[in-house]
């Protein structure tokens, strides 16, 4: 199914990716090509096949309810591009 420019822009917006106009047409073609190729899967009848959500068959292991982390803001703030005190800082969000 050929992709249109608008769809590429919508998806890019959803993915929070700023694309140059020159990139968009190229991506439209490439993604269209990949989508056409994966349509090969339509040859298969998968009625009644349970989807495989992961590569390991086991029960989820649970951790005990113990506080074992935190307590040192520097660990999580040490790499921050911008901080104010012990907060991360971002451009003001108007709600």
């Amino acid at each position: 199914m050929p992709l249109d420019i608008l769809t590429v822009r919508r998806i890019a917006r959803l993915a929070r990716l700023r694309l140059e106009d020159s990139e968009i047409e190229r991506l439209r073609q490439e993604l269209g090509g990949i989508l056409a190729w994966v349509e090969m899967l339509d040859e298969l009848d998968v009625t009644g096949v349970p989807p495989m959500t992961g590569a390991v068959a086991m029960a989820l292991k649970m951790r005990p309810d113990l506080v074992t982390e935190g307590g040192n803001p520097e660990i999580v703030l040490g790499n921050a591009p911008e901080r104010i005190g012990d907060f991360y800082a971002v451009p003001k969000v108007v709600e």
Binding site: R13, R16, L17, R18, V76, N79, A80, P81, E82, Y88, V90, P91, K92, V93
Partner: peptide, 17 residues
């Protein structure tokens, strides 16, 4: 926001993009 590259933007969404 928390680590790595940041390219400034007009607002938060612009910064993300």
């Amino acid at each position: 926001v928390r680590y790595g590259l940041r390219v400034p933007g007009e607002d938060l969404i612009d910064l993300y993009e």
